[in-house]
Computed example of a mutant assay.
Amino acid sequence: MLISELLEGLFKLFPADTAEPWDHVGLSVGRPDDEIRGVTVALDASEANVRRAAADGSNVLLTHHPVYIKAPQAFVPASPAYPSSAAAVFAAVECGVSIISLHTNLDRSCEAQQLLPSLVGLQVVSSLESASCSGALGLGSLADASSKLTLEQLASRCSEAFGCDPRVWGDPDRALGRVAFLGGSMGDFGELALACGADAIVTGEGGYHVCQDLLVRGCSVILLGHDRSEEPFVDILVDALARVGFSGPIATIKNPHQWWTYTKGERA
Results as ranks from 00 to 15, higher is better:
Leu154Glu: 00
Gln114Cys: 12
Ser185Gln: 14
Leu192Gly: 04
Glu152Cys: 01
Phe181Thr: 05
Ala155Ile: 07
Ala161Asn: 02
Asp188His: 13
Leu176Arg: 09
Val124Lys: 09
Ser147Thr: 11
Ala161Met: 04
Leu137Tyr: 11
Ala131Cys: 10
Ser146Pro: 12
Ser98Met: 01
Glu160Ile: 14
Ala155Glu: 06
Ile99Gly: 06
Val168Ala: 11
Leu116Pro: 01
Asn105Cys: 03
Ser109Pro: 08
Gly121Phe: 14
Pro166Trp: 12
Thr150Lys: 09
Val125Cys: 05
Ser126Val: 13
Asp188Ala: 13
Glu111Gly: 05
Gly163Thr: 05
Leu176Cys: 12
Ser127Met: 09
Ser141Trp: 00
Ser127Ile: 07
Ala155Gly: 10
Leu139Tyr: 12
Val120Glu: 04
Ala175Leu: 09
Leu176Tyr: 10
Leu106Asp: 06
Leu154Ala: 02
Phe189Cys: 06
Gly135Trp: 00
Glu129Gln: 15
Gln113Met: 15
Ser146Val: 12
Asp188Thr: 12
Ser134Tyr: 11
Trp169Glu: 14
Leu176Gln: 12
Cys158Tyr: 08
Leu115Tyr: 04
Ile100Val: 15
Arg167Gln: 14
Gly184Thr: 09
Gly184Leu: 10
Gly187Thr: 07
Asp107Trp: 01
Asp144Cys: 03
Gln123Leu: 07
Leu176Glu: 08
Val124Asp: 04
Leu116Asn: 01
Val168Arg: 01
Glu111Tyr: 06
Asp107Arg: 00
Leu137Asn: 11
Ser147Val: 08
Val120Arg: 01
Gln153Leu: 08
Glu160Trp: 02
Gly140Phe: 02
Val179Thr: 10
Gln153Ser: 11
Asp107His: 03
Leu122Ile: 05
Ser109Lys: 01
Gly187Tyr: 11
Phe189Met: 14
Gly163Ser: 10
Gln113Asn: 15
Ser101Pro: 12
Ser126Asn: 13
